[in-house]
Design a protein around this nucleic acid. Structure first.
Lengths: 193, 193
DNA sequence: CGAGCGCTTGATTGAGTTCAAAAATCGTGG
DNA sequence: CCACGATTTTTGAACTCAATCAAGCGCTCG
C-alpha cells in the first residue's frame, strides 16, 4: 500500500494540477517520536491526523487510571476526535505515537479548502464518517455480545498487520480485557489447535 | 417538544413555501403497531425512520439468541442502520416498535431532493452523523471502562424520558447486563440513598 | 550487565451470569 | 371493574469468566 498523503489526495479528491499544488501549499508534515502526544484529554482536537508513516493510537483513561485503546491508525489511515473537533468540546482522548511516525496535520481550513474544490472529496469524507460509524457499531456489538476469545479472534482477523506491530497489552486494552486474561485466552487457543 | 416531522424540516432545512410542499409530496407516514418490524437482520435498510410519535428500538441478536439493544428512538428522533443503507449491505439489526407509533419513511430519493434544495439540511445531516459517532464512542468507552452501576446511572441521567416508557429488561439489554443484574444494581442503589 | 518492561503462570477474589422460583405488575376479556 | 393469565421484576444459590494480586522468566536497550 502506498501510504503517501499525496497519493491519497489523488485517489480521493480528483484535483487539477494547479488546484493540487495550491491545496498542498502550507500543508505540514511533522515527525512524531514514539511516545509523543498529538492530543491530550482536556484539550480541543484541532486536526485530523493523517498517518504517512508509523503508527498512532487513541485512548481514554478511566477514573481508576486504566487505559482503554479506542483506535489504532497505521499508514494511510486518519485519526482524530471528531466529537471534540466538530462540536468544539474538550476531548476525552489521548492520541500518541506507538512508533516514530510521519503525520500530516489536517486543519479545518485545509479541509474547507479541499471541500470547496472537490465534491468528490466531500463524498469520500461522508463515506469515511459512515465507515467510522460502522466500525463503532460493530465494536459496541462485540462488547455487548462476544466473549474475550471471540473478540480476540476477530481482532487478529481484522488487523493482522497492526497486531504484529504492537505489544500484547495494547491488544488487551483494545479488547477491553487485562493483559493476563489475553495471555490465558491465547494459551487456550494454542491448546485447541 | 414538538415532534412533528414538518416542524423538524422547518427547523433544519429552511425551505421556501413552494419547495416545502414539493418536498413533502409523496412523503408517507405510517402507523406501526407495537411489536411490528421495520427492519430485520439480513435485509438491506432502505429508509431512515423518523419517529413522529411513539417509540422504536434497534437491536441485534447474538449467536446464543440474546438480544442487545443498540438504540432507542422516541418522538423527534431518527433511527436506521447507516452501515446497511450507505454501503448497501445486509443489516445485522432489527428495528421494531416498542409502542404504537407514527413513522415517516425517508428514502434515498427524498434525502437527495432535500440535499439539493437545502445546504442547511446537508449541514444538519453531517451534524447528525457526528452526533451519532459521539454517542457510539461514548458507549464503547462505557462498555470498556465502567461498571454496571455506573452505566445504569449514566443511562437514567441521559434518557430519563425513555426510561419511563420501557420495561426494565430493555434497559438491561441496552446496558449489556442481565435483567437480574440490573434488578440487583437498583436494589444496591436504593440502599445507598 | 543490570534495570525495567512485557509476558506468563498460579492462587484468589469478585462482578455478573445462570437457573429456578416466588412476588409484583400489567393487560385484557368477561 | 374485577379476575385471571401473562409478563416483568425480584430474590436466592451456585457457578463462571475475567480481574486482581503476586511472583518469576526472558528480553532488550541504555
Amino acid at each position: 500500500m502506498n501510504s503517501d498523503f499525496k497519493t491519497y489526495l489523488n485517489l480521493n479528491a480528483n484535483l487539477s494540477e494547479q488546484q493540487y499544488s495550491e491545496t498542498i501549499k502550507g500543508l505540514q508534515i511533522k515527525n512524531i517520536k514514539k511516545g509523543e502526544f498529538l492530543l491530550r484529554s482536556g484539550e480541543i482536537c484541532m486536526y485530523i491526523f493523517f498517518v504517512n508513516k508509523g503508527l498512532l493510537r487513541s485512548y481514554t483513561i478511566d477514573k481508576s487510571g486504566k487505559e482503554h485503546i479506542i483506535q489504532f491508525a497505521s499508514e494511510g489511515w486518519m485519526i482524530t476526535d471528531r466529537s471534540s473537533s466538530f462540536f468544539n468540546e474538550s476531548s476525552d482522548l489521548y492520541i500518541d505515537a506507538i512508533e516514530d511516525s510521519e503525520v500530516y496535520f489536517l486543519d479545518e481550513s485545509f479541509l474547507q479548502k479541499l471541500s470547496c474544490l472537490s465534491p468528490e472529496f466531500i463524498k469520500n469524507n461522508t463515506q469515511a464518517l459512515h465507515n467510522h460509524i460502522r466500525n463503532l457499531q460493530d465494536r459496541v456489538n462485540m462488547l455487548l455480545g462476544a466473549t474475550a476469545e471471540e473478540r480476540y479472534l476477530k481482532f487478529i482477523k481484522m488487523y493482522p498487520n497492526i497486531l504484529a506491530r504492537i505489544p500484547q497489552w495494547m491488544v488487551a486494552s483494545y479488547l477491553g480485557i487485562t493483559p493476563e486474561s489475553l495471555s490465558r485466552v491465547r494459551k487456550q487457543l494454542t491448546k485447541k489447535s
